[in-house]
């Protein structure tokens, strides 16, 4: 006996009568019964969507998307491949890397992936702590007072300096908050508090962190220190203790 065809399976799932021989087969065939169950589950999911009305966004949203993409030289590569073979794709962006990172990848993998895409020169510098000390070696790019988030009390300051070789460093002068067994991690976060990059762990009250190439502090102006339990999860814990906004 042949298996039921998909029309018959769908009919059975919908409770419609089908050809007697096919119905008899389906009653005794595990494979066909499973298919029917599967289709019934789909029908159940569809019923579950009752009452949902889709609301299309206003036209200005698409206009804004087009404008944003057109304005960004990194992503306006709406290039039509000329067909001479390999499409290298657009440069990998910090934001995309962040999206991937939030899917629980190690920041090291991100650094390496970005380097592979040519977005970071020197690659694995992500997260590496640059030696402390040696103030005044660069041009001041931005600075921010820091505040303790629990009390709003001042908690030192942050500066971004550009060195002669073009690299930027975040210099933190902040008391190290008590964190017990957990680590304190330093982040730069975008204004939507969506994209973020880890710069490394805070271990002293004066410390410098190299900012990975490709991250513009104008886009990631929020300096954030979070308490990170040693749970192997590389994403932000959501437990911030110190913050400031570079300007």
């Amino acid at each position: 006996m042949r298996h039921c065809d998909e029309e018959e399976l769908a009919a059975l799932a919908l409770g419609d009568p089908i050809d007697a021989a096919a119905a008899a087969h389906a009653a005794g065939c595990e494979r066909c019964a499973t298919e029917v169950e599967d289709l019934r589950a789909v029908a159940g999911r569809v019923q579950g969507a009752a009452g949902v009305e889709l609301v299309a966004p206003p036209a200005r949203v698409w206009t804004a998307i087009e404008a944003e993409i057109a304005a960004d030289p990194r992503s306006s590569a709406v290039k039509v491949d000329e067909g001479d073979g390999v499409d290298e794709g657009p440069a990998v962006e910090p934001e995309d890397e962040l999206a991937r990172r939030r899917e629980r990848r190690s920041p090291w993998v991100v650094g390496i992936a970005a380097a592979a895409a040519g977005a970071i020169i020197g690659g694995v510098a992500v997260g590496l702590v640059v030696s402390g000390g040696d103030d005044g070696g660069g041009t001041l790019v931005a600075q921010a007072p820091l505040a303790d988030l629990a009390t709003d009390a001042p908690a030192g300051s942050a500066r971004v300096e550009r060195r002669d070789d073009g690299t930027e460093v975040l210099v933190l002068d902040t008391p190290v908050p008590a964190a017990g067994d957990a680590n304190l991690e330093v982040w730069l976060i975008d204004t939507d508090v969506v994209g973020m990059v880890s710069l490394g762990f805070l271990t002293g009250d004066h410390q410098e962190f190299e900012i990975p190439a490709g991250y513009d502090v104008a886009d990631f102006p929020i300096v954030d220190v979070s308490v990170e339990p040693s749970d192997g999860d590389p994403t932000h814990s959501g437990d911030s203790v110190t913050r400031g906004v570079l300007g």
Binding site: P57, V61, R100
Partner: peptide, 14 residues
């Protein structure tokens, strides 16, 4: 909505 589609376009390699 805007952010999502801009991010989707930029991240289409993924």
């Amino acid at each position: 909505t805007q952010q999502t589609f801009v991010a989707a376009w930029r991240g289409r390699d993924g």
